[in-house]
Nucleic acid binder design. Structure first.
Lengths: 116, 116
DNA sequence: ATTACATATGAACAGATGTTCATATGTTAA
DNA sequence: TTAACATATGAACATCTGTTCATATGTAAT
């Protein structure tokens, strides 16, 4: 057997070969999963949705969502690292906004799937 | 203060009111997060990508990805529950395929974001 | 400088998640 | 019916994740 972790035999070698060729390399798929992981939390999805309407500061986001400033800040950090949001500072206040057109578009596709 | 979990004050009430109106209700956003949660795992993303090329049986998927038959079966269950894949039985073998056009389209959008 | 406030960050803890292992179910062939 | 095999499922376990709490940083005003 090829793989010790797999308890079954290869059934359709031709299909597997064909699909294997069409598959992006592992790292790319890991990155892709990591991207969607960021979308896969209700707090972050809310933040992204809010920001698709208008830029907002941390404080207002926290109030609107009903979580602590700290929790929101932590999540904004995740969103920032994923390059989904950007920010600008205005005095003491930091305003966040979407960094990418894909964000709205991905959310939209997701909603279409939900609404079926 | 409105919310005991928020340690900061409302800064821009007008913006918050506007955004609050534009926001879908909580349940919908939860569902949306749950949907993306399904995409947010490398094993499941791989499975979805495989199936976007061609329908495959559990055994071949397990061999191709290099995980146990059990692990793949568990994940296919998750994908099934999210209505992202469907299956047909042919004798002992069960073939899975994508259930929805949105799947490929969401993955495509994600990849575009990655490739920037 | 000191105070006030908006935001960021580290540690810790509880709950969620993915894999494995063992085993059950379903189908075919002998 | 029995054996063989493809798939499904439940329990257990280790890891990952999101929130809170406490505190640090950054900025403006007094």
């Amino acid at each position: 057997m090829d793989n010790p972790t797999c308890s079954c035999f290869l059934l359709h070698e031709d299909v597997v070969e064909k699909v294997k060729k069409a598959l992006p390399d592992d790292n790319k798929l890991m990155d892709l999963a990591d991207l969607f992981k960021v979308f896969g939390d209700s707090t972050r999805i809310k933040i992204l949705y809010l920001l698709s309407v208008e830029e907002m500061c941390v404080c207002d986001i926290a109030n609107l969502i009903g979580l602590s400033q700290s929790a929101i800040s932590h999540q904004l950090r995740v969103l920032k690292q994923a390059k989904l949001v950007k920010y600008r500072r205005d005095g003491k206040v930091v305003f966040y906004s979407l960094d990418d057109d894909h964000v709205s578009s991905i959310i939209k596709q997701g909603l279409e799937h939900i609404n079926e």
